[in-house]
Design a protein around this nucleic acid. Structure first.
Lengths: 222, 222
DNA sequence: AAGTCATATGACTGCATAGTCACATTATAC
DNA sequence: GTATAATGTGACTATGCAGTCATATGACTT
């Protein structure tokens, strides 16, 4: 946790520090990010930094808090009453909000993924433990509900599907930015390409890719 | 590329260096891995290292070569005549060999994934460019074949499915080690849990999770 | 044995960083 | 206006690293 001094700062100064820190971590990654370079960019003294934070990790975890808070803003409307909608509609909304979040805050996503993807890194468990984690548990109950409604096959392995669905959320974002959009830096508005991407994933999750074996079809004209 | 001097080394010494380097990268990651520490562990002089390699990146890319070579050994039997088998059987074999590889060479997989997962890292493109890359292109033609055989739905987005199938290969390995096996360090023989894991993924890819909408079924007793 | 080439060595230079601390500056209280 | 607390400062220390180079050692040749 940042020290009290940091939270006593005028909001503008705090925001400058956070913004520059986000840039630094996005550009260099956690390991190569440098406190010295950051304080120079911020035009604050090295010593001041240590008045605000315990060290690099402390700062980074604070940024992760921001990521989660911001992400929740995007997620909130979707998750307000999850039981009211069809499971796949809910999933679609979820992926859409993930994509919208990534589109408006690409750097936050970038530093978030640094952690999310690097289970071997020492910071991983601290970041996950204090923040994210167990997002897959939400899916557990949603899946059970969906099964009882006849929307999802009853014989699936629920924890496996929860896992898949979580990881597909990231995959959607990645696929859009790397394949569809092409990872250029220009920011674009929400568009149909994004919706198409989400639909690709949802359809895949729904139906897979094999040709269904038809049940005994009795077509009188046959 | 390592210098000639390195390849002139007696094989035992070369292997020691490679093994210790793999340990170093697996433990600390690329950024934090230290040449000084490695040379100490190897009991070779710092100067000697620079007789063998241009620097850290050179060494790392050499290790990536080893990863790819070793992985190909596991893949080769499966890919010998890919057109002879049903698409999903081939895919299953592919995932199985991926899992077998990860099981016998966990550290190689670890350092391989460091790169594969970090598209932002400066080393990424060099490692990909010289080595892996375009594995998804193999799937393109296989998928077309599978469609023509009526094994796969004809209206899929081929490049999308190639992408998914590639990323599911990694996901299978991750799921097995993190969820099924529990990521303990003990090495185990090939077992049924691994096969079950692969089957979970293959079934998911085949059928998705939604309850199929039945075609007009005319069951006389209905 | 002398000469030549390949390899080994580790002290040394130079650089970037983390983190500290005695002191300066500003805000707040009385 | 003076005292006290909070915050700002940047030179300084200590650490660790990459990469070099003059020199030593060994191996092979004639």
């Amino acid at each position: 946790m940042p020290k009290e001094t940091f939270f006593n700062l005028p909001e503008t100064k705090r925001t400058i520090i956070e913004t520059i820190a986000i840039d630094e971590f996005a550009e260099y990654g956690f390991d190569k990010a440098s406190i010295s370079r950051m304080t120079e960019k911020c035009e604050i003294a090295k010593g001041s930094f240590y008045q605000y934070f315990e060290g690099k990790k402390d700062l980074f975890l604070h940024l992760m808090d921001l990521v989660v808070k911001e992400k929740l803003k995007f997620l909130a409307p979707t998750m307000e009453n999850p039981a009211e909608h069809n499971f796949f509609e809910l999933l679609k909304d979820l992926y859409i909000s993930g994509l919208e979040f990534a589109n408006t805050h690409p750097k936050l996503v970038q530093i978030g993924n640094q952690v999310l993807k690097n289970k071997d890194h020492p910071v991983y468990y601290e970041a996950i433990g204090s923040n994210m984690s167990k997002s897959y548990k939400v899916f557990d109950s949603l899946l059970k509900l969906a099964i009882s409604r006849g929307e999802v096959q009853p014989d699936i392995d629920i924890s496996f599907v929860s896992y898949i669905i979580s990881s597909m959320n990231l995959a959607t974002v990645e696929y859009y930015f790397e394949v569809v959009k092409g990872d250029s830096d220009k920011v674009v508005e929400w568009n149909n390409d994004m919706l198409d991407t989400v639909n690709l994933f949802i359809n895949f999750i729904k139906h897979g890719i094999s040709v269904p074996i038809k049940e005994v079809v009795n077509n009188d004209k046959g």
